[in-house]
Design a protein around this nucleic acid. Structure first.
Length: 531
RNA sequence: GGUCCAUUCGUCUAGUGGCUAGGACGUCAGGUUUUCAUCCUGGUAACAGGGGUUCGAUUCCCCUAUGGACUACCA
């Protein structure tokens, strides 16, 4: 009896394990998406980089995959203090959540390349041993000279199969010679031995099949004389070790894809799938959007303010909402195939597919970015906006009751794209005009304006309930009764209250600033414009 | 210069072997608002050029032009 029970349990366990194995092997394995965003900490991350991170992230999340942040800092000379933190904060602001990284940890670390120097060296040695790489002793100066000489004759110097024999390396030199150099501690690099005249085919999810002949490629340096790998080696090794399933990166990497393919082949590893994203172009014409542009183009090229050295503006500090920024960025180079334009991060992760990413570069349009922010701002409540605007006012020394501010924000909300715009629309609520628009005076200040204004003042003095609705009612009744010209009176009143011809309904304005202030402004306007 | 990639309104883009080539931003006009904006309605505006293939090409192929990326012991 007991034996039977054990037998049944064992059967169940075996069945369960079998099922798990089956699904592990076939379903989750195939679906296990692991992508990485791999920036270099050489300064602030620009919006092209943010978009690459975003596409990686939403692609991964669509299938429940893993998003990895890997810091590629193999060039110690270009390391910039604060850049790592900046990258992490920028992603966080955008709502891009890192699953594995230097802060988050993970089973495939270290996630900072400078922390795993020794590992790369081992892989470089593998290539040396199987004959796919070699030691090269040429100094940078020697190579520079060769390049300059070639340029004079109109040719381009490339370190490849044809010239490698004539240079200083373990292919051209006698074994005793190059071993002696190694023993003497002469500086060297390790170069990939690119095969001669071979067509290699590879696929890109966005661009399709591409063919390149290896003769046009050079023997790239894989390992530098300073003991660090170059991008190419570190990148391939890490992508393999971290089990990256899809490499989604900028198009600037497309020319080095053949090399990367060759490296995978030399190591005997399966290649991940590649997708090269089109570049983000400058709005004014030429070239890709670059870090150097700074804010000289009139809009930020960075997500956050960069506080070090040569500072740079950021979208966050300029008043953009993160969700508007992300929405705008997502649609630059990708579209859902429907007419939907507004996407939350969740909706993006549901709708995103790589096959709807375009092939050509996108020029960045600051106007559209602004429009997106306008839309997102309209979806905020007046309370939220009042809270944000209060901070703005505090910095300017104004302390206003939050309920008052809510009313104010409600009056101008739909005409602004940024919280800071509220100030431009409402400055006259806080301070009386110092000058009066001459154009408006010329056009709208009539012979009897001053006299009518004084009469209006007397009326306003007597109104107890100074709410917008009540004043409007009484003033209009008065105009009607006397048979006055509405336009003349309204224009004159607006002129003395605002200083020019703009702003929300005039009764809303005078009600908000109150009777006392209204009367004061009428007097002041009367004495200045007078007549 | 070489290698690779790309090319639909000013911009972001949809789309098809036969359509009035669609949408959005911008812009322009009208309406609303007794102001200014917002908002609403409408208009403007594109298949880079030349050859093929085809009854028919914006769509498929080739060439040219243009733009871009790369061409470092940078990523």
């Amino acid at each position: 009896m007991v034996q039977n029970l054990i037998f049944v349990i064992v059967l169940y366990v075996i069945g369960f394990v079998y099922l798990c194995t089956y699904f592990n092997l076939y379903i989750p394995y195939m679906a296990q998406v692991r992508v990485r965003f791999a920036p270099s900490p050489t300064g602030p991350l620009h919006i092209g980089g943010v978009r690459t991170a975003l596409y990686n992230y939403i692609f991964a999340k669509k299938s429940g995959g893993i998003f990895i942040l890997r810091i590629e800092d193999t060039d110690q000379a270009r390391f910039v203090e604060g850049a790592e933190e900046y990258i992490m904060e920028a992603l966080k602001w955008c709502g891009i959540i890192v699953d594995e990284g230097i802060k988050e940890g993970g089973d495939f670390g270290p996630y900072r390349q400078s922390d795993k120097k020794a590992i790369y060296r081992q892989y470089a040695d593998i290539l040396i041993n199987n004959g796919d790489a070699y030691y090269a002793f040429d100094t940078p100066e020697q190579l520079e000279t060769l390049r300059n000489e070639s340029e004079k004759t109109g040719n381009t110097f490339i370190y490849n199969a044809e010239v490698r024999e004539k240079l200083n390396n373990s292919v051209s030199l006698q074994e005793t010679e190059w071993k002696r150099k190694l023993d003497n501690g002469e500086p060297y690099v390790i170069r990939y031995k690119m095969p001669h005249n071979e067509d290699i085919h590879f696929d890109d999810i966005i661009r399709g099949n591409i063919v390149v002949n290896t003769s046009t490629l050079d023997d790239k340096v894989l390992f530098k004389s300073d003991g660090m790998p170059t991008y190419h080696l570190a990148n391939i090794v890490d992508d393999h070790l971290m089990k990256i399933s899809h490499v989604i990166r900028g198009e600037e990497w497309l020319p080095s894809l053949p090399l990367h393919f060759m490296l995978y082949r030399s190591f005997g590893w399966d290649t991940p799938l590649f997708a090269h994203l089109p570049l983000l172009l400058k709005p004014d014409g030429k070239g890709k959007l670059s870090k150097r542009d700074g804010d000289k183009l009139g809009f930020p090229v960075f997500p956050l303010f960069w506080p070090y050295g040569e500072t740079a503006k950021g979208y966050r500090e300029e008043g953009y909402y993160a969700d508007a920024f992300v929405n705008m960025l997502a649609l630059l180079g990708w579209n859902p195939g429907t007419e939907q334009e507004f996407f939350s991060m969740k909706e993006l992760t549901e709708a995103f597919t790589l096959d709807r990413v375009g092939k050509s570069g996108s020029r960045f349009d600051p106007e559209k970015a602004k429009w997106f922010n306008h839309h997102y701002l309209q979806n905020k409540t007046s309370t939220q906006l009042a809270l944000e605007f209060r901070e703005f006012l505090r910095a300017r020394g104004y302390h206003v009751d939050i309920v008052q501010l809510e009313t104010l924000v409600g009056l101008v909300k739909e005409r602004v794209s940024f919280v800071k715009d509220i100030w431009d629309q409402t400055d006259f609520f806080f301070k009386a005009p110092e000058t009066y628009d001459q154009e408006v005076i010329k056009k709208r200040w009539k012979e009897d304006s001053a006299m009518l204004l004084m009469e209006l003042k007397c009326l306003l003095e007597k109104i107890n309930d100074f709410s917008a609705a009540n004043t409007e009612l009484l003033v209009k009744a008065w105009i009607e009764e006397k048979g006055y010209n509405t336009s003349t009176i309204m224009s004159a009143l607006r002129l003395v209250i605002v200083g020019t011809s703009r702003g929300p309904h005039i009764f809303d304005i005078i009600s908000w600033i109150g009777r006392e202030e209204t009367l004061k402004r009428i007097d002041k306007g009367f004495s200045v414009i007078g007549k």
